[in-house]
Amino acid sequence: MRKGALALLLLLAPTLAQPLPEALKKAPEVTAVVLARLEAETRRKDLERTLQDPLRTPLAELQARQAWELAEARLKRALAQAENEIASAYAQAYEALLQVGLAEKAVEVAELGLKATEIRLKGGGATSLDLLEAQNRLLEARKNLELAQKGRDSALAALAQLVGPWRPESVKELPTLPEGKVVETLLQEHADLLQLRQSLNLLRFQRGLLDESFAPRKDIEALEDQSQALETNLANLERTLRLGLEARYRQLVPLLQGVKAAEEAYRAAQERYRAEEKRFQAGLTSRLSLLQQELSLRQAELTLEQAKHAYLKAYYGLLASR
């Protein structure tokens, strides 16, 4: 067996199927998070050493504390971004699995449709053009299946890079809308804003150390100019980030509404399939009609999962914007 085929079998092993919350637990193991955690630990130790130094200066203590706080903020961001990447890859992989199932069913429908056309042609109920069209539909369905299988392999491999061999499944429960002042919280924890705030505080601290009686006026004015420039940059960045975060947050409600609409459409498709199945069992409809209804049901299922995933990606994308 080729290595690629063996790897795929491992990826598809039923025992490896796990829900999204289990996959998200792998976020702390993502390389970027591991590196950010090491940096935060290093900065924490630096701060402890600085605080234990009896000869430390207030400036040295401030700089060590700022370095640790910034490293912690970057660790939180790395973890949130890793969860966002995992959620996105998980959703993509599950959709890819559904796409394969949908494509396989389409091939089955096209094969049966071709057989039906061949029989009708022999009985004079179809033309050569009908047969050609049925053959083309089958070729197209098989091509789509091949593309779907390649997409599945690629999506599962991308997910495996983040969490190891994994078979995703349908997301049963979506996270609820973030409560409270989520935008304010994300702005407060945003690493880039924190870095600017720290730089501003450091300049103000350095300005406070200067004695106007001895320090050259140009040095004092230079620090004051730098402070004003940083204040402007900080305000501009915060305004830009706030607009972006508010826009992301506003997307969540309509995306949840889209999930509800897709759920209703899926339930309706289930009802239609059950009705067609009863008709088929009673001999009132053909197997081809039943397969076509099953194909519609699978499409409705895919649409529902895509709606769920759109919300998931927006939700974790918002939390990663810090």
Rank of each mutant, 00 (worst) to 15 (best):
M1L: 13
M1N: 11
G4Q: 15
A5N: 11
L8P: 07
L9Q: 15
T15I: 14
L20E: 01
L20C: 12
P21N: 11
A23V: 06
A23Y: 13
L24W: 06
L24Q: 05
A27D: 01
P28C: 06
E29M: 08
V30H: 06
T31I: 04
A32G: 03
V34S: 04
L35Y: 05
L38H: 09
E41V: 00
T42Y: 10
K45N: 06
R49V: 11
T50S: 13
D53L: 15
L55Y: 10
P58T: 08
A60D: 12
E61W: 04
L62I: 11
W68D: 05
A71C: 02
K76V: 01
R77M: 00
A78R: 00
A80L: 01
Q81M: 02
A82S: 07
Y94L: 08
Y94W: 11
Y94F: 12
L97P: 09
Q99M: 03
L102H: 04
L102C: 02
A106D: 02
L112E: 14
L114H: 06
K115S: 12
A116W: 03
A116T: 15
R120W: 01
K122W: 02
G124E: 02
S128I: 00
L132R: 06
K143A: 12
E146T: 11
Q149W: 05
G151H: 06
Q161S: 10
P165H: 13
W166C: 12
R167Q: 12
S170P: 10
V171Y: 09
K172F: 04
K172Q: 10
E173W: 03
E179H: 03
E179L: 11
G180Y: 05
K181I: 00
E189P: 01
L193P: 15
L194S: 06
L196H: 09
S199Y: 14
L202A: 11
E212S: 09
S213T: 08
R217N: 05
K218F: 15
A229Q: 15
E231T: 13
N236V: 08
R239P: 05
G244V: 01
R248M: 01
Q251M: 03
L256A: 02
A261V: 07
A269L: 06
E271H: 07
R272N: 08
Y273I: 05
A275E: 14
E277Y: 08
E277M: 05
R279K: 14
G283L: 15
L290C: 09
Q292P: 08
S296C: 00
R298Y: 05
Q299M: 01
E301H: 03
T303W: 01
A307P: 02
Y311H: 09
K313S: 08
K313E: 11
Y315A: 03
Y316F: 14
G317F: 05
L318K: 03
